[in-house]
Design a protein around this nucleic acid. Structure first.
Lengths: 152, 152
DNA sequence: CCAATTTGGTTTCGTTTTGCAACTGATTGG
DNA sequence: CCAATCAGTTGCAAAACGAAACCAAATTGG
């Protein structure tokens, strides 16, 4: 589907100079981040992803291909003509802080008090502390105490 | 449009127990996070958002309404019958770490070396350091050294 | 105060994307 | 070798999206 005419690598960027926009261009849809989340949680095969997310199979095909093309996932080879498996690339793994902040926001704002949800824990089983932007000098930052500088 | 029949508050959650999925249900589309980004950068009026993002006007209407319904934005209205402005709620402002991690990933992986992009700086004009998940004891964490625990 | 302009949408309509279900051809397990 | 499973495709209908025209209330200029 539309993967025929030497696909001109997408419609360029939504906002070429903004890193947020570029990232959203790559993973800002209903499924990509959930696929990444599941890959981080051990999903490797087509059906792993399909069953965990519940995504339609043709859309999953498209997303896996897209994420692979953009270097977030890779097909890990099988010696002979075996079945393919997907694995996160370094760039894909590097989305970990994004997944963590999405998760932590959800825990704080998308659940009623007492409503059960899964939790991210470290190797010792302790809950991962909330991620908070800090200044060069270590003080906490918010959107009010930061600004975007153009062009650099 | 479709805002008529006492809108049954959406199709429930994609994956009810996963905080990542809930957050993605709310802001996981092409525009919502860019609207949030612009609000953090000072956008307040309909045309502010329209011009900064380039989003179609009808879609912008829908997204502003949706984000408002879900408590990420609020209309602060002026005393008399003045024009409405939008402002981030506390929950909306609390997406700051998400925007920051998206930005930092983009800076690391979505630009060629030497390609110019905007930068987030603190009050002193210093670049905000990369956000990294750490364990309770302070050691850095990756997706390989964490796990999701169900049900809590 | 009044006319012109701007703002904040809404409506219409054509295009794209998404989702479901059925189907196909390799792969595997027994 | 046979049946089940896996990794997709294909066809089609429904939903979401986008561009442009339209409109009423608010604002501005004179």
């Amino acid at each position: 589907m539309a993967a025929d005419d030497t696909d001109r690598q997408g419609p360029a960027w939504t906002d070429p100079s903004c890193p947020v926009a570029r990232t959203v261009d790559l993973v800002g849809d209903r499924w990509s981040l959930l696929i990444i989340r599941d890959a981080m949680d051990g999903a490797r095969s087509f059906t792993d992803f399909q069953q965990r997310t519940g995504i339609a199979r043709n859309i999953l095909t498209d997303r896996l291909r897209r994420l692979t093309q953009h270097g977030l996932l890779a097909q890990v080879d099988a010696p002979s003509g075996k079945r393919r498996r997907y694995a996160l690339t370094e760039a894909g793994k590097d989305l970990f802080p994004v997944i963590v902040t999405l998760r932590q926001w959800g825990e704080r704002h998308a659940f009623d008090a007492g409503e059960p949800h899964s939790v991210l824990v470290d190797g010792d089983g302790a809950r991962v502390p909330d991620l908070l932007p800090v200044a060069a000098n270590g003080s906490p930052l918010t959107s009010d105490t930061t600004s975007v500088r153009r062009h650099t």
